[in-house]
Design a protein around this nucleic acid. Structure first.
Lengths: 186, 186
DNA sequence: ACCTGAACACCGTTCAAGT
DNA sequence: ACCTGAACACCGTTCAAGT
């Protein structure tokens, strides 16, 4: 019976990932330490290394965990303007749910794979319908993502609608309007 | 003669700040440690605490140092579109000069004061000329800053024009066009 | 005034040893 | 297979002591 002295059940990756994600959202990525995580899991710090290569691999994994929880809008048939707006809202909701981890991803994009996650699969057809030529879609997608990510991170840090959540909503709507107005090439 | 055993001259804030800034740009903010900085300055780690309250204060100070080196465009009389474009270019140049520190500021805006630095003094008149009503200018400025910051950070991380710098320039120009097109309220 | 050494409470990670 | 303790090379920071 290879069972820990302090715990009844063996460690699972799911347990490690969800606990680590919780710690990150409670105190930011810099509040996650292998030793603290182990303490919360009631386990020796070194036991973690049996399930995780190292700390940066762990962070990558919890980024994937989060990406998997992303709820994308499903609204084919609507005009591209509306679909783009819905996608922007979904993105914002996700950032608001995991703000610390998103701030981390924004400056460590290598933590999550390149152009993966369902966002891109949804965004490309929208750009096509908006009339963006095929060879420009990747770049346009990057630009839009840069815009929206920058905006949402800015909001999250209290620069927008700090006192008045309704105003933050209005600002976001205005920003999306601006993108929709500016997107089609004349 | 209160002179260090290892150095001829006493430590100055300028020396500390510029060396710390250099370390940050060489290896990212996470590569800056008080002990490493002291080693480079050829000084006991604890000597630093005579000139700097703590590490986060030091980082704030080097952010200010960097902001002071910002070269803003001076082009009154040009149409607002052109002035906005010039300002966006100045911003990008600055980020390209201090990429690591900017990435840090983008997620730690408390490190640099609120709406200070000459950017805002230049941006507000531009928005006025663009017809943005006075009560919306602060928010609009935040939105634009969020956009541009997000875009530039995205570019810096190699998502845009990784292989082709000329393409990165083109993308940035396209993005500015989009903002200029989308800015005036109809 | 300025600098220093020892010390404290933390890190991530390796490695040999335990069941 | 899974877990552990001791150890190594790092951190930021405090504090009493030196010149």
């Amino acid at each position: 019976m290879a069972v820990s002295a302090r715990r009844g059940a063996p460690l699972t990756p799911e347990e490690i990932h969800s606990t680590a994600l919780r710690l990150v959202e409670e105190g930011g990525v810099e509040a996650l330490s292998m030793r603290k995580l182990a303490a919360v899991l009631d386990v020796n710090p070194m036991s973690l290394y049996h399930h995780v290569a190292n700390k940066t691999a762990l962070i990558s994994q919890i980024c994937q965990t989060m990406a998997g929880r992303l709820a994308l809008p499903d609204n084919p048939g609507s005009p591209w303007q509306e679909r783009l707006r819905d996608l922007a809202h979904a993105y914002r909701r996700m950032v608001q749910r995991y703000p610390s981890l998103w701030a981390y991803i924004h400056t460590h994009p290598e933590a999550v794979g390149d152009h993966q996650g369902g966002i891109w699969d949804v965004l490309f057809p929208i750009l096509a319908d908006a009339g963006v030529p095929e060879e420009e879609r990747t770049t346009t997608a990057d630009v839009l993502h840069g815009f929206v990510a920058g905006l949402v991170v800015t909001e999250r840090q209290g620069h927008i609608g700090r006192d008045d959540p309704a105003q933050a909503d209005r600002v976001y709507e205005t920003a999306i309007d601006m993108i929709i107005r500016g997107l089609p090439h004349p």
